[in-house]
């Protein structure tokens, strides 16, 4: 799995059109790409932020991270892929129906 650029893989994970929490995706990518450090964790989260800022993901729900699932006191976001995100995902050759 871990042989495509991380942003491709993130879009692919969202291609099921379900909402996912950012920390779920981050943890998944960290495991797949074997990038367990805090810096890499933030860097992957930043990729998600960039995808959202580029209009490929949009957030559907936010909550404050009370328990420190990801980073205590910060916001957790739940994202879903947008139509534009689907277009870009299909551009990068996923089988997208």
């Amino acid at each position: 799995m871990a042989n495509r650029p991380i942003k491709f893989r993130i879009l692919e994970l969202f291609s099921d059109e379900q909402s996912h929490w950012n920390y779920e995706i981050v943890q998944k990518i960290q495991k797949e790409y074997n990038q367990m450090g805090d810096f890499q964790r933030d860097s992957i989260n930043f990729d998600i932020i960039e995808l959202a800022s580029g209009g490929m993901l949009k957030d559907t729900e936010t909550k404050v991270d009370e328990e420190g699932i990801y980073k205590k006191g910060f916001l957790l976001h739940k994202y879903v892929i947008t139509d534009f995100g689907k277009v870009r995902a299909s551009n990068v050759c996923f089988v997208y129906v």
Partner: peptide, 9 residues
């Protein structure tokens, strides 16, 4: 290109 790639890379 940056839509789907890391800026540094």
């Amino acid at each position: 290109g940056l839509d789907i790639a890391e800026p540094d890379v």
